[in-house]
Design a protein around this nucleic acid. Structure first.
Length: 211
DNA sequence: GACCAGATGTACT
DNA sequence: GTACATCTGGTCT
């Protein structure tokens, strides 16, 4: 890619707009690859580039929390407007973050699964307990831990540049770099388990664009 | 690479 | 009350 982005460059980027999230969930998932997550923390601004996501298709998707129209306090954010963050707690110790898509009343989302640090790597490493390397942010629980996301961020508005938001710095991920496959951890979801809704950028390609 | 323990919120009976 | 979860890290092979 071009020269490394400075903190100043990053704070000038406009957040992705509301209409970005209102599209088809699979389209949103694919176009999120290569986008930046910006995160304000007491330690400073952090930026990471998304490398892996999964689409969750709402009421018809057995793997989705809102399958069959489930609407509970936990899933309430998914039923709301697009462009918000849905964070939930799982396995007794991990958080997972999703971005809500489509229109209010259509509870679909994209799970953020993996990323590479662009700014504030040392902060991320510290929050990850000193672990570094290629596995730094290669899972949804790790991503939340590294970015300091938890249930306090559930419902956060991603279209305003405060707390946490997403932005496009112009980096493009060619289709040839994207691997498509079945989602992780949804084996018991019947036929939905096989749907190819996981999208992952080949890491070797991505490192070229990550810096 | 495969296997497994770990810890607790959430959904449903 | 109970089963299980959009997972991770450590251990063993």
């Amino acid at each position: 890619m071009s020269k490394p982005l400075s903190r100043r460059d990053l704070t000038r980027l406009a957040p992705l707009e509301h209409r970005f999230y209102q599209r088809d969930t699979v389209d949103v998932a694919v176009s999120l690859l290569g986008k930046l997550i910006l995160r304000e923390l007491p330690e400073g601004l952090i930026a990471v580039r998304l490398t892996e996501v999964e689409a969750y298709l709402g009421v018809v998707d057995r793997a989705c929390h809102t399958f069959g129209g489930r609407r509970t306090p936990r899933t309430e954010v998914m039923w709301g407007d697009a462009g918000r963050l849905y964070v939930y707690f799982t396995y007794g110790m991990h958080h997972c973050a999703n971005v809500v898509t489509r229109a209010a009343g259509v509870p679909e989302a994209v799970l953020l699964r993996g990323a590479l640090p662009v700014l504030g790597r040392e902060v991320v490493v510290a929050r990850r307990g000193g672990r570094d390397g290629r596995t730094l942010l290669d899972g949804p629980g790790k991503l939340c831990q590294g970015l300091g996301l938890d249930r306090a961020d559930n419902g956060a508005d991603l279209t305003s540049a405060s707390g946490v938001w997403l932005a496009d710095d112009g980096a493009r991920v060619p289709d040839a770099w994207v691997r498509r496959g079945p989602r992780v951890g949804v084996a018991s979801a019947g036929e939905a388990a096989a749907w190819p809704l996981r999208f992952q950028v080949e890491l070797d390609s991505m490192t070229a664009v990550a810096e």
